[in-house]
Simulated assay, not measured.
Amino acid sequence: MKKFISILGLLPICFVCKAQVMITSGVPANPTPSNNAILQLYSENPNKGLLMPKVSLTATDNPSPFPNHLAGITVYNTNTSTVNNLTSVSPGIYYNDGVSWNRMEVQAPTVGDIKYSSTPDDHDGWYLLNGRAVSTLSSTARNNAAAVGFTTTLPNSTDRFLKAKSGTETLGTTAGNTSVTLTQANLPNVTYTNIVTQTTGAHSHTYNDRANGALNSTEGSTTQTVVDDGFTTLNTTSAGAHTHTFSISTGGSGTALNLQPKYLSAYIFVYLGQ
């Protein structure tokens, strides 16, 4: 009988209260299940956890070792499968959505990660890149800042776009301009000079000295007929050679071109830990 009692003492204690179930470890003085939980786990000593059933999955699209997919079922997978990169599995907790297995994981930030945010304040280990001295940060943030290359100050991201670091650049370097002024070297290789036309302009024109026949000539109130029977064809002289000179303006105002595209402003943070 004592042996039976001692075995029972090792079993968790279940309390049922209005359809709520609490599974406890140890014998708490007065455990009360939450009204919002169907099943609640409780440990008298805060050194216990929930151990998921361990199974060996083969692929996310394969329900094995279960006969079919069942939405809501959760397991710990122990297998590593690389049959297909799109359906491969690795050790971790998986839940089934009725169609396939999905790995449960939280994407935790890594020291040095950069992100945009709409809040201006430091939060949850994220520090605003505003040019402040590293010495003003917490000890953890100072150490992590130095580890990623920010030993004196944090970069100032005000009015800056992010770009990939080149091989010779120092991390956190700020440079560049929002506008540029073109110089002659930026223009096509064209030389503008004074232009003079050619002198080969000699030519002549043919004309009649007057019309052939009789014409009326009026002097005051008297009209008389003038007869001209000496009709001839005449030519102008060919001495018409000449030149014209004109210039092309090469001046300008040197107005700078704006390089900044349309944008949405936000705050830029670096993760330095908590």
Rank of each mutant, 00 (worst) to 15 (best):
K2M: 10
K2G: 12
I5H: 00
S6D: 13
L8Y: 12
G9I: 03
L10P: 05
P12G: 10
I13S: 15
C17N: 14
K18P: 00
K18I: 11
K18F: 08
A19E: 08
V21P: 04
M22K: 10
G26M: 02
N30H: 01
T32E: 07
T32G: 11
P33C: 07
S34C: 07
A37T: 05
Q40N: 08
S43T: 13
S43L: 06
P46M: 09
N47Q: 13
G49D: 05
L50Y: 12
M52C: 01
P53A: 05
K54V: 09
S56W: 06
L57N: 07
T58E: 06
A59T: 11
T60R: 14
T60Q: 15
D61W: 07
N62K: 12
S64H: 15
P65R: 13
P67L: 03
L70D: 08
G72K: 00
V75P: 03
V75Q: 11
N79C: 09
T82Q: 13
T82F: 14
N84T: 09
N85C: 03
N85F: 07
L86G: 06
L86M: 10
T87W: 08
N96P: 02
D97L: 05
G98H: 14
N102L: 06
R103P: 02
R103E: 11
M104Y: 14
M104S: 09
I114W: 05
S118P: 00
D122G: 06
D122L: 12
D124R: 00
W126P: 02
W126R: 04
G131P: 01
R132T: 00
T136F: 03
T140G: 01
A141W: 02
A147R: 11
F150G: 04
T152P: 06
L154W: 01
T158Q: 05
R160Q: 13
F161I: 10
S166V: 07
S166G: 15
T168R: 13
L171V: 07
L171N: 05
L171S: 03
T173C: 08
A175L: 01
A175C: 02
T181I: 13
N186R: 11
P188W: 02
T193E: 03
T193Q: 05
I195Q: 10
V196G: 02
T200R: 14
G201Y: 02
A202L: 04
H203I: 10
H205N: 02
N208A: 12
R210T: 10
G213F: 04
N216T: 09
T218C: 12
G220I: 13
G220F: 05
S221H: 03
T222M: 11
T222Y: 12
T223R: 04
Q224K: 13
Q224T: 14
V226D: 03
D228W: 06
T233Q: 06
T236P: 02
S238N: 11
G240C: 12
T243C: 09
H244R: 07
H244W: 03
H244K: 08
S247Q: 09
S247A: 11
S249C: 15
A256P: 09
L257D: 07
N258V: 12
N258F: 00
P261W: 15
L264H: 04
A266L: 01
Y267T: 00
F269M: 02
L272E: 06
